[in-house]
């Protein structure tokens, strides 16, 4: 080979680097353009991360430091280290019923995630791979609903429906409007992912005599699991963080969710001096962040596979 083609090194080198864009010249020496791009991205990342680190820091400051605006604590960190976390979790009379609120959040979030996931998998499958009469009209309705400000314009209607059903102040019932508000986005994510599953695969399963439910469970579902992770995370974050409906439909403080309590709490006084509020804040954001950390790999893949298509 090498004797017949003396130019092999010269021609094969670009081929080996073909995934590298030629625009990133010059290859020799310091690449100022690439450095500039990284600088921009690092600044963006710092912008995102520093405010959150500030809250983490605040949650370990002493109460004196927490009342001032200097960033690094001048009186050292609180000792023992988790004092504020312990305080907010175990002082229901001064802080509020944190455990109850946390349980409420978990309950509503779980119900919403399960309902929205099952709903969107079944509906997305029907819209893409089954002969569904009127699927165009259904899709158009879903698109239209995404632009209608339901949460604002129809909140009066949601309230009167929940009141007629006797569901005001019933924490679990928040999953009904939550799931309804995520119908369109969840189905569109699953629809985009189901479209990446080749039709031949489903047709051949049909020829083999599998019914549509068995085809979905045995053949299609494993192929779209990354998309399902996207649906789970989208609904998890939305349900865990919904504010307006939980505030409006739940009258009693201990029926609401943790983020609603934090959002309407007046921090800086009484049981919720700033470092304590920061500790509570970290407790409230940790579940979603852990979910993301665990599922991040599948989530990214799911987004690439077509969840972002529409």
């Amino acid at each position: 080979m090498s004797t017949m083609q003396p130019a092999v090194p010269a021609t094969s080198a670009p081929a080996a680097y073909s995934s590298v864009s030629a625009l990133d010249e010059p290859r020799r020496g310091f690449n100022w353009k690439a450095a500039g791009r990284h600088l921009f991205l690092v600044i963006m990342c710092l912008w995102v991360i520093l405010p959150l680190l500030w809250v983490v820091l605040l949650s370990f400051k002493t109460l004196q430091d927490g009342a001032h605006n200097w960033i690094w604590p001048r009186n050292g960190f609180i000792h023992p280290f988790l004092t504020h976390y312990d305080y907010v979790l175990n002082n229901p009379r001064k802080v509020g019923p944190i455990w109850t609120l946390f349980k409420n959040s978990v309950l509503v979030t779980m119900l919403t995630v399960v309902a929205a996931t099952v709903m969107s998998v079944l509906a997305g499958y029907a819209l893409v791979h089954l002969r569904t009469p009127g699927s165009r009209i259904l899709t158009a309705l879903l698109v239209a609903s995404m632009f209608f400000p339901t949460q604002v314009t129809a909140i009066v209607g949601i309230f009167s429906i929940q009141r007629r059903l006797g569901l005001i102040n019933q924490t679990w019932s928040l999953m009904l409007p939550y799931t309804a508000l995520s119908v369109a986005i969840s189905i569109f994510i699953m629809r985009g992912v189901f479209q990446t599953v080749p039709k031949d695969l489903i047709d051949s399963a049909k020829i083999d005599g599998a019914n549509s439910l068995r085809t979905l469970g045995g053949i299609v579902l494993p192929l779209v699991r990354n998309g399902i992770v996207v649906v789970i995370i989208v609904n998890f974050v939305a349900a865990w963080g919904e504010y307006l409906l939980a505030l409006t439909l739940m009258n009693d403080l201990d029926k609401r969710t943790l983020p609603v309590f934090l959002g309407s709490a007046s921090g800086g006084v009484g049981g919720l001096l700033w470092p304590r509020m920061a500790a509570l804040y970290i407790i409230a954001i940790i579940p979603a962040l852990i979910t993301f950390a665990v599922a991040q790999r599948w989530y990214m893949k799911g987004l690439q596979e077509g969840a972002l298509k529409t």
């Binding site: 309902a115 099952v118 709903m119 969107s120 079944l122 509906a123 499958y125 029907a126 819209l127 089954l130 002969r131 569904t132 009469p133 259904l138 309705l141 879903l142 609903s145 209608f148 339901t150 314009t153 129809a154 909140i155 009066v156 209607g157 949601i158 009167s160 429906i161 009904l176 409007p177 799931t179 309804a180 508000l181 119908v183 189905i187 549509s212």
Partner: peptide, 25 residues
């Protein structure tokens, strides 16, 4: 054969999306 798959979606969409919009109207 296809609408059973859409039942849950229709339940939530009609019950807490269409009906509230109609009710507020």
């Amino acid at each position: 054969s296809s609408y059973p798959y859409l039942l849950i979606a229709i339940f939530f969409f009609v019950g807490w999306q269409i009906l509230p919009i109609y009710s507020s109207f």
